[in-house]
Design a protein around this nucleic acid. Structure first.
Lengths: 232, 232
DNA sequence: GGCTATAAATAACA
DNA sequence: TGTTATTTATAGCC
Protein backbone atom coordinates (compact mmCIF):
# COMPACT_ATOMS: atom_id res chain seq x y z
CA UNK A 1 0.00 0.00 0.00
CA UNK A 2 2.78 2.37 0.75
CA UNK A 3 5.27 0.82 -1.52
CA UNK A 4 5.30 3.53 -4.09
CA UNK A 5 6.97 6.04 -1.85
CA UNK A 6 10.28 4.68 -0.83
CA UNK A 7 11.79 7.46 -2.75
CA UNK A 8 14.20 9.64 -0.92
CA UNK A 9 15.80 8.89 2.30
CA UNK A 10 18.86 10.44 0.85
CA UNK A 11 20.27 12.02 3.89
CA UNK A 12 20.11 11.44 7.54
CA UNK A 13 19.51 15.08 8.09
CA UNK A 14 21.13 17.57 10.31
CA UNK A 15 23.18 16.28 13.16
CA UNK A 16 23.88 17.96 16.39
CA UNK A 17 27.36 19.29 16.58
CA UNK A 18 29.51 20.52 19.36
CA UNK A 19 30.43 24.17 19.25
CA UNK A 20 34.15 23.87 18.90
CA UNK A 21 36.57 24.54 16.14
CA UNK A 22 35.94 22.43 13.09
CA UNK A 23 39.12 20.68 12.17
CA UNK A 24 38.30 19.59 8.69
CA UNK A 25 39.16 22.49 6.49
CA UNK A 26 36.64 22.09 3.73
CA UNK A 27 33.98 21.43 6.23
CA UNK A 28 34.94 24.52 8.07
CA UNK A 29 34.75 26.59 4.96
CA UNK A 30 31.34 25.34 4.05
CA UNK A 31 30.11 26.01 7.53
CA UNK A 32 31.62 29.45 7.45
CA UNK A 33 29.86 30.32 4.23
CA UNK A 34 26.50 29.03 5.27
CA UNK A 35 26.56 30.47 8.70
CA UNK A 36 27.82 33.82 7.56
CA UNK A 37 24.87 34.08 5.25
CA UNK A 38 22.62 33.02 8.05
CA UNK A 39 24.09 35.61 10.36
CA UNK A 40 23.61 38.40 7.88
CA UNK A 41 20.08 37.32 7.27
CA UNK A 42 19.33 37.40 10.97
CA UNK A 43 20.85 40.82 11.24
CA UNK A 44 18.79 42.00 8.34
CA UNK A 45 15.62 40.72 9.92
CA UNK A 46 16.48 42.36 13.19
CA UNK A 47 16.87 45.66 11.39
CA UNK A 48 13.62 45.39 9.55
CA UNK A 49 11.55 44.04 12.39
CA UNK A 50 12.75 46.35 15.11
CA UNK A 51 14.22 49.32 13.35
CA UNK A 52 17.59 48.66 14.89
CA UNK A 53 20.79 49.65 13.19
CA UNK A 54 23.31 46.91 12.83
CA UNK A 55 26.83 46.69 11.56
CA UNK A 56 28.75 43.46 11.24
CA UNK A 57 32.28 42.84 10.14
CA UNK A 58 33.49 39.32 9.59
CA UNK A 59 37.01 38.27 8.90
CA UNK A 60 37.31 34.75 7.69
CA UNK A 61 40.29 32.72 8.67
CA UNK A 62 41.43 33.24 5.16
CA UNK A 63 41.91 36.62 3.71
CA UNK A 64 38.42 37.81 3.25
CA UNK A 65 36.36 40.41 4.95
CA UNK A 66 32.63 40.55 4.81
CA UNK A 67 30.60 43.38 6.09
CA UNK A 68 26.99 44.13 6.68
CA UNK A 69 25.42 47.36 7.72
CA UNK A 70 22.05 48.92 7.93
CA UNK A 71 21.37 51.59 7.20
CA UNK A 72 24.97 52.49 6.74
CA UNK A 73 27.88 50.61 8.16
CA UNK A 74 30.21 53.54 8.32
CA UNK A 75 27.88 55.69 10.31
CA UNK A 76 27.30 52.94 12.77
CA UNK A 77 30.95 52.26 13.21
CA UNK A 78 31.64 55.90 13.44
CA UNK A 79 29.05 56.36 16.10
CA UNK A 80 30.44 53.47 18.01
CA UNK A 81 33.97 54.68 17.71
CA UNK A 82 33.13 58.19 18.70
CA UNK A 83 30.99 57.20 21.59
CA UNK A 84 33.47 54.84 23.04
CA UNK A 85 36.46 56.80 23.85
CA UNK A 86 38.87 54.37 22.47
CA UNK A 87 41.89 55.94 23.90
CA UNK A 88 41.18 55.26 27.44
CA UNK A 89 42.74 52.17 28.73
CA UNK A 90 41.97 49.94 31.55
CA UNK A 91 45.03 49.85 33.59
CA UNK A 92 46.41 47.70 36.27
CA UNK A 93 46.64 50.08 39.15
CA UNK A 94 49.33 48.11 40.82
CA UNK A 95 51.99 48.92 38.39
CA UNK A 96 53.73 52.07 37.51
CA UNK A 97 52.68 51.62 33.96
CA UNK A 98 49.13 51.37 35.15
CA UNK A 99 49.42 54.60 37.01
CA UNK A 100 50.68 56.36 33.99
CA UNK A 101 47.96 55.00 31.88
CA UNK A 102 45.43 56.21 34.33
CA UNK A 103 46.96 59.59 34.24
CA UNK A 104 46.66 59.48 30.53
CA UNK A 105 43.06 58.54 30.64
CA UNK A 106 42.37 61.43 32.86
CA UNK A 107 44.02 63.86 30.59
CA UNK A 108 42.44 62.35 27.58
CA UNK A 109 38.92 63.35 28.45
CA UNK A 110 39.98 66.92 28.76
CA UNK A 111 41.81 67.00 25.51
CA UNK A 112 39.06 65.26 23.69
CA UNK A 113 36.81 68.04 24.73
CA UNK A 114 39.20 70.58 23.39
CA UNK A 115 39.33 68.75 20.16
CA UNK A 116 35.58 68.90 19.87
CA UNK A 117 35.62 72.59 20.42
CA UNK A 118 38.30 72.93 17.87
CA UNK A 119 36.24 71.08 15.36
CA UNK A 120 33.23 73.20 16.07
CA UNK A 121 35.21 76.28 15.39
CA UNK A 122 36.21 74.88 12.11
CA UNK A 123 32.65 74.32 11.19
CA UNK A 124 31.68 77.77 12.15
CA UNK A 125 34.49 79.27 10.22
CA UNK A 126 33.68 77.28 7.18
CA UNK A 127 30.06 77.94 7.39
CA UNK A 128 30.57 81.64 7.57
CA UNK A 129 32.65 82.33 4.56
CA UNK A 130 32.44 85.90 3.52
CA UNK A 131 29.85 86.71 6.04
CA UNK A 132 30.70 86.98 9.64
CA UNK A 133 33.92 88.72 9.04
CA UNK A 134 34.11 90.51 12.29
CA UNK A 135 35.82 89.16 15.29
CA UNK A 136 34.25 86.29 17.06
CA UNK A 137 34.56 84.49 20.23
CA UNK A 138 36.86 82.01 18.67
CA UNK A 139 39.25 84.71 17.79
CA UNK A 140 40.07 85.23 21.37
CA UNK A 141 43.60 84.72 22.52
CA UNK A 142 42.42 81.45 23.84
CA UNK A 143 41.89 80.49 20.31
CA UNK A 144 44.86 78.28 19.93
CA UNK A 145 44.33 76.58 23.20
CA UNK A 146 42.63 73.65 21.65
CA UNK A 147 45.37 73.11 19.21
CA UNK A 148 48.08 73.60 21.72
CA UNK A 149 46.43 71.33 24.15
CA UNK A 150 46.14 68.81 21.47
CA UNK A 151 49.75 69.09 20.66
CA UNK A 152 50.64 68.77 24.23
CA UNK A 153 48.50 65.74 24.52
CA UNK A 154 50.15 64.30 21.50
CA UNK A 155 53.53 64.72 23.06
CA UNK A 156 52.33 63.17 26.24
CA UNK A 157 50.84 60.31 24.35
CA UNK A 158 54.08 59.72 22.58
CA UNK A 159 55.93 59.74 25.83
CA UNK A 160 53.55 57.27 27.31
CA UNK A 161 53.80 55.08 24.32
CA UNK A 162 57.51 55.05 24.53
CA UNK A 163 57.31 53.88 28.07
CA UNK A 164 54.78 51.27 27.26
CA UNK A 165 56.90 49.97 24.49
CA UNK A 166 59.94 49.84 26.67
CA UNK A 167 57.96 48.06 29.24
CA UNK A 168 56.79 45.61 26.66
CA UNK A 169 60.30 45.04 25.51
CA UNK A 170 61.36 44.29 29.02
CA UNK A 171 58.70 41.74 29.38
CA UNK A 172 59.51 40.30 26.07
CA UNK A 173 63.03 39.66 27.20
CA UNK A 174 61.77 38.24 30.37
CA UNK A 175 59.50 35.94 28.54
CA UNK A 176 61.98 34.78 25.97
CA UNK A 177 64.55 33.96 28.51
CA UNK A 178 62.22 31.87 30.54
CA UNK A 179 59.56 29.91 28.88
CA UNK A 180 58.66 29.80 25.32
CA UNK A 181 55.55 28.48 23.91
CA UNK A 182 52.50 30.02 22.56
CA UNK A 183 53.26 29.81 18.94
CA UNK A 184 50.85 31.53 16.82
CA UNK A 185 51.14 31.76 13.24
CA UNK A 186 52.89 34.54 11.79
CA UNK A 187 52.08 36.04 8.61
CA UNK A 188 52.52 39.50 7.75
CA UNK A 189 49.77 41.67 6.81
CA UNK A 190 50.48 43.47 3.72
CA UNK A 191 47.96 45.88 2.79
CA UNK A 192 44.96 45.90 1.02
CA UNK A 193 42.56 47.60 -1.04
CA UNK A 194 39.34 47.60 0.61
CA UNK A 195 36.86 48.33 -1.96
CA UNK A 196 33.57 49.40 -0.79
CA UNK A 197 30.32 49.32 -2.49
CA UNK A 198 27.38 50.76 -0.94
CA UNK A 199 23.79 51.38 -1.12
CA UNK A 200 21.64 52.59 1.55
CA UNK A 201 19.21 54.78 3.14
CA UNK A 202 18.50 55.65 6.60
CA UNK A 203 15.45 55.40 8.46
CA UNK A 204 15.45 56.83 11.83
CA UNK A 205 16.28 59.61 14.00
CA UNK A 206 18.77 58.67 16.43
CA UNK A 207 20.41 59.73 19.49
CA UNK A 208 22.53 57.33 21.17
CA UNK A 209 24.87 56.85 23.91
CA UNK A 210 26.87 53.80 23.91
CA UNK A 211 28.20 51.39 26.31
CA UNK A 212 30.30 48.42 25.78
CA UNK A 213 31.67 45.54 27.32
CA UNK A 214 33.25 43.62 24.89
CA UNK A 215 36.75 43.03 24.45
CA UNK A 216 38.11 39.76 23.89
CA UNK A 217 36.37 36.70 23.47
CA UNK A 218 32.81 36.69 23.17
CA UNK A 219 30.56 35.52 20.70
CA UNK A 220 27.57 36.99 19.20
CA UNK A 221 25.28 36.01 16.61
CA UNK A 222 24.35 36.02 13.09
CA UNK A 223 21.97 37.29 10.65
CA UNK A 224 20.33 37.64 7.31
CA UNK A 225 20.43 37.13 3.80
CA UNK A 226 22.94 37.81 1.41
CA UNK A 227 24.62 40.93 0.96
CA UNK A 228 27.79 41.26 -0.20
CA UNK A 229 30.53 39.06 -0.03
CA UNK A 230 33.23 38.47 -2.24
CA UNK A 231 36.71 39.26 -2.23
CA UNK A 232 38.39 42.08 -3.80
CA UNK B 1 -7.28 7.01 30.88
CA UNK B 2 -5.94 10.10 29.34
CA UNK B 3 -7.95 12.43 31.40
CA UNK B 4 -5.22 13.34 33.78
CA UNK B 5 -3.14 15.09 31.24
CA UNK B 6 -5.00 17.72 29.43
CA UNK B 7 -2.86 20.16 31.17
CA UNK B 8 -0.58 21.93 28.84
CA UNK B 9 -1.62 23.28 25.61
CA UNK B 10 -0.73 26.61 26.95
CA UNK B 11 0.55 28.12 23.80
CA UNK B 12 -0.08 27.63 20.20
CA UNK B 13 3.59 27.81 19.48
CA UNK B 14 5.57 29.91 17.13
CA UNK B 15 3.75 31.57 14.33
CA UNK B 16 5.13 32.63 11.04
CA UNK B 17 5.60 36.33 10.79
CA UNK B 18 6.22 38.63 7.94
CA UNK B 19 9.54 40.40 7.96
CA UNK B 20 8.39 43.96 8.25
CA UNK B 21 8.53 46.52 10.96
CA UNK B 22 6.67 45.48 14.09
CA UNK B 23 4.23 48.18 14.97
CA UNK B 24 3.41 47.21 18.50
CA UNK B 25 6.08 48.78 20.61
CA UNK B 26 6.32 46.32 23.43
CA UNK B 27 6.28 43.48 21.01
CA UNK B 28 9.03 45.10 19.06
CA UNK B 29 11.14 45.51 22.13
CA UNK B 30 10.71 41.93 23.15
CA UNK B 31 11.61 40.77 19.70
CA UNK B 32 14.61 43.04 19.66
CA UNK B 33 15.91 41.61 22.88
CA UNK B 34 15.40 38.02 21.94
CA UNK B 35 16.76 38.33 18.45
CA UNK B 36 19.73 40.36 19.51
CA UNK B 37 20.71 37.59 21.88
CA UNK B 38 20.17 35.08 19.13
CA UNK B 39 22.29 37.07 16.74
CA UNK B 40 25.14 37.35 19.16
CA UNK B 41 24.96 33.67 19.87
CA UNK B 42 25.14 32.87 16.20
CA UNK B 43 28.11 35.13 15.80
CA UNK B 44 29.76 33.49 18.72
CA UNK B 45 29.26 30.09 17.20
CA UNK B 46 30.61 31.26 13.89
CA UNK B 47 33.74 32.46 15.60
CA UNK B 48 34.25 29.26 17.49
CA UNK B 49 33.41 26.88 14.71
CA UNK B 50 35.34 28.53 11.94
CA UNK B 51 37.91 30.69 13.64
CA UNK B 52 36.47 33.80 12.06
CA UNK B 53 36.70 37.16 13.69
CA UNK B 54 33.45 38.97 14.09
CA UNK B 55 32.43 42.38 15.30
CA UNK B 56 28.85 43.50 15.67
CA UNK B 57 27.43 46.80 16.70
CA UNK B 58 23.73 47.15 17.33
CA UNK B 59 21.88 50.33 17.97
CA UNK B 60 18.40 49.80 19.23
CA UNK B 61 15.68 52.18 18.23
CA UNK B 62 16.09 53.69 21.60
CA UNK B 63 19.37 54.97 22.73
CA UNK B 64 21.17 51.80 23.49
CA UNK B 65 24.17 50.30 21.87
CA UNK B 66 25.20 46.70 22.08
CA UNK B 67 28.44 45.42 20.81
CA UNK B 68 30.05 42.10 20.29
CA UNK B 69 33.52 41.27 19.18
CA UNK B 70 35.81 38.34 18.98
CA UNK B 71 38.60 38.38 19.64
CA UNK B 72 38.56 42.12 19.95
CA UNK B 73 35.97 44.41 18.53
CA UNK B 74 38.21 47.40 18.23
CA UNK B 75 40.87 45.60 16.30
CA UNK B 76 38.34 44.22 13.91
CA UNK B 77 36.79 47.57 13.32
CA UNK B 78 40.16 49.12 13.00
CA UNK B 79 41.21 46.57 10.47
CA UNK B 80 38.08 47.13 8.52
CA UNK B 81 38.49 50.83 8.63
CA UNK B 82 42.12 50.94 7.74
CA UNK B 83 42.26 47.86 5.66
CA UNK B 84 45.36 46.74 7.39
CA UNK B 85 45.90 43.64 9.35
CA UNK B 86 46.58 44.34 12.92
CA UNK B 87 46.23 41.05 14.56
CA UNK B 88 49.35 39.62 13.11
CA UNK B 89 50.78 41.66 15.87
CA UNK B 90 50.33 38.60 17.91
CA UNK B 91 52.53 36.59 15.69
CA UNK B 92 55.94 37.96 16.09
CA UNK B 93 56.19 40.60 18.66
CA UNK B 94 59.49 41.95 17.66
CA UNK B 95 58.94 42.19 14.01
CA UNK B 96 55.40 43.20 14.09
CA UNK B 97 55.65 45.67 16.85
CA UNK B 98 58.67 47.20 15.30
CA UNK B 99 56.97 47.43 11.96
CA UNK B 100 53.97 49.11 13.38
CA UNK B 101 55.93 51.57 15.30
CA UNK B 102 57.91 52.39 12.26
CA UNK B 103 54.78 52.83 10.31
CA UNK B 104 53.54 55.24 12.85
CA UNK B 105 56.71 57.16 12.97
CA UNK B 106 56.56 57.45 9.29
CA UNK B 107 53.08 58.75 9.38
CA UNK B 108 53.95 60.98 12.20
CA UNK B 109 56.23 63.19 10.20
CA UNK B 110 53.46 63.78 7.78
CA UNK B 111 50.93 64.58 10.39
CA UNK B 112 53.28 66.84 12.20
CA UNK B 113 53.57 68.78 9.03
CA UNK B 114 49.84 69.05 8.80
CA UNK B 115 49.77 70.30 12.29
CA UNK B 116 52.14 73.07 11.38
CA UNK B 117 49.99 74.06 8.49
CA UNK B 118 47.01 74.04 10.74
CA UNK B 119 48.69 76.39 13.09
CA UNK B 120 49.60 78.70 10.29
CA UNK B 121 46.04 78.84 9.21
CA UNK B 122 45.09 79.84 12.65
CA UNK B 123 47.48 82.68 12.52
CA UNK B 124 46.23 83.83 9.22
CA UNK B 125 42.66 83.73 10.36
CA UNK B 126 43.43 85.61 13.48
CA UNK B 127 45.49 88.16 11.72
CA UNK B 128 42.84 88.83 9.19
CA UNK B 129 39.86 89.64 11.28
CA UNK B 130 37.32 91.55 9.37
CA UNK B 131 39.42 91.67 6.32
CA UNK B 132 39.80 88.68 4.16
CA UNK B 133 36.23 87.73 4.21
CA UNK B 134 36.08 86.07 0.90
CA UNK B 135 36.94 82.49 0.37
CA UNK B 136 40.51 81.46 0.72
CA UNK B 137 42.63 78.53 0.14
CA UNK B 138 41.90 77.27 3.55
CA UNK B 139 38.26 77.24 2.80
CA UNK B 140 38.75 74.45 0.42
CA UNK B 141 37.24 71.12 1.25
CA UNK B 142 40.72 70.14 2.17
CA UNK B 143 40.52 72.65 4.88
CA UNK B 144 39.96 70.23 7.66
CA UNK B 145 42.54 67.86 6.41
CA UNK B 146 45.05 68.93 8.93
CA UNK B 147 42.75 68.51 11.82
CA UNK B 148 41.27 65.35 10.49
CA UNK B 149 44.59 63.86 9.78
CA UNK B 150 45.68 64.76 13.20
CA UNK B 151 42.67 63.13 14.63
CA UNK B 152 43.20 60.13 12.52
CA UNK B 153 46.72 59.91 13.67
CA UNK B 154 45.59 60.25 17.20
CA UNK B 155 43.20 57.38 16.74
CA UNK B 156 45.82 55.30 15.11
CA UNK B 157 48.27 56.08 17.83
CA UNK B 158 45.73 55.11 20.38
CA UNK B 159 45.13 51.90 18.59
CA UNK B 160 48.78 51.10 18.59
CA UNK B 161 49.08 51.93 22.20
CA UNK B 162 46.22 49.77 23.07
CA UNK B 163 47.80 46.91 21.30
CA UNK B 164 51.09 47.45 22.95
CA UNK B 165 49.42 47.60 26.29
CA UNK B 166 47.44 44.51 25.61
CA UNK B 167 50.55 42.82 24.52
CA UNK B 168 52.22 43.85 27.69
CA UNK B 169 49.38 42.59 29.76
CA UNK B 170 49.42 39.42 27.84
CA UNK B 171 53.02 38.87 28.59
CA UNK B 172 52.49 39.79 32.12
CA UNK B 173 49.90 37.09 32.40
CA UNK B 174 52.08 34.72 30.55
CA UNK B 175 54.76 35.35 33.00
CA UNK B 176 52.54 35.00 35.99
CA UNK B 177 50.75 31.94 34.88
CA UNK B 178 51.76 29.43 32.35
CA UNK B 179 48.45 28.56 30.90
CA UNK B 180 46.62 30.61 28.44
CA UNK B 181 43.88 32.89 29.19
CA UNK B 182 41.94 35.53 27.71
CA UNK B 183 41.69 38.51 29.70
CA UNK B 184 43.09 41.55 28.42
CA UNK B 185 41.45 44.67 29.01
CA UNK B 186 40.58 47.66 27.20
CA UNK B 187 37.34 49.13 26.61
CA UNK B 188 35.93 51.96 28.34
CA UNK B 189 32.60 53.32 27.93
CA UNK B 190 32.72 56.94 28.17
CA UNK B 191 29.81 58.74 27.09
CA UNK B 192 29.28 61.80 25.25
CA UNK B 193 26.26 62.84 23.53
CA UNK B 194 26.46 61.87 20.03
CA UNK B 195 23.37 63.07 18.50
CA UNK B 196 22.77 61.75 15.10
CA UNK B 197 19.87 62.21 12.84
CA UNK B 198 19.18 60.08 9.89
CA UNK B 199 16.29 60.19 7.60
CA UNK B 200 15.61 57.79 4.94
CA UNK B 201 13.96 54.79 3.65
CA UNK B 202 13.43 51.44 4.88
CA UNK B 203 15.32 48.49 3.94
CA UNK B 204 18.59 48.87 2.32
CA UNK B 205 21.71 47.36 3.36
CA UNK B 206 25.24 47.93 2.89
CA UNK B 207 27.79 45.53 1.85
CA UNK B 208 31.37 45.87 1.45
CA UNK B 209 34.23 43.60 1.00
CA UNK B 210 37.80 43.97 1.52
CA UNK B 211 40.70 41.71 1.47
CA UNK B 212 43.86 41.61 3.32
CA UNK B 213 46.76 39.37 3.66
CA UNK B 214 47.91 37.21 6.33
CA UNK B 215 45.70 35.36 8.55
CA UNK B 216 44.78 36.42 11.86
CA UNK B 217 46.01 34.88 14.84
CA UNK B 218 43.99 32.11 16.05
CA UNK B 219 42.94 32.85 19.42
CA UNK B 220 42.48 29.98 21.71
CA UNK B 221 38.87 29.29 21.77
CA UNK B 222 37.86 28.50 25.13
CA UNK B 223 34.31 28.87 24.86
CA UNK B 224 32.55 31.87 24.90
CA UNK B 225 30.09 33.07 26.96
CA UNK B 226 27.70 35.61 26.72
CA UNK B 227 28.58 39.00 27.12
CA UNK B 228 26.88 41.84 28.11
CA UNK B 229 24.71 44.37 26.93
CA UNK B 230 23.01 47.11 28.54
CA UNK B 231 22.23 50.64 28.27
CA UNK B 232 23.82 53.72 29.37
C1' DG C 1 12.03 35.76 32.62
C1' DG C 2 9.89 30.90 31.41
C1' DC C 3 6.97 27.65 28.21
C1' DT C 4 5.56 25.20 24.06
C1' DA C 5 4.50 24.46 19.35
C1' DT C 6 6.11 25.78 15.12
C1' DA C 7 9.07 28.29 11.82
C1' DA C 8 13.87 28.49 10.42
C1' DA C 9 18.50 27.31 10.10
C1' DT C 10 21.70 24.03 8.91
C1' DA C 11 24.97 19.30 9.13
C1' DA C 12 25.50 15.60 6.46
C1' DC C 13 25.09 14.03 1.83
C1' DA C 14 24.72 13.79 -3.17
C1' DT D 1 25.42 24.09 -5.03
C1' DG D 2 20.86 21.66 -3.82
C1' DT D 3 18.15 18.29 -0.76
C1' DT D 4 16.43 16.54 3.56
C1' DA D 5 16.23 15.18 8.27
C1' DT D 6 16.99 17.38 12.49
C1' DT D 7 18.43 20.73 15.55
C1' DT D 8 17.65 25.55 16.82
C1' DA D 9 15.55 29.78 17.17
C1' DT D 10 11.43 32.05 18.59
C1' DA D 11 6.30 34.08 18.36
C1' DG D 12 2.63 34.09 21.27
C1' DC D 13 1.56 33.67 26.16
C1' DC D 14 1.98 33.63 31.23
Amino acid sequence: MNNMMMKKKTTQGRKKIEIKKIDNISNRQVTFSKRRVGLFKKASELCILTGAQVAIIVHSLGKRVFAFGHPNIDDIISRYTTGSSSSSFVADQNTQLGAEIQEHNKHYAKVLKELEIEKKRKEIIEGSKGVNCGSFWWDEPIDNMGLEELEQYKASLEELMKKVIMRADDMMLLKNSSSNNLGFNNNIGADINPSVANVGCDDMFFTSTAEYYGNNSMVPYNGFEDFGNQQV
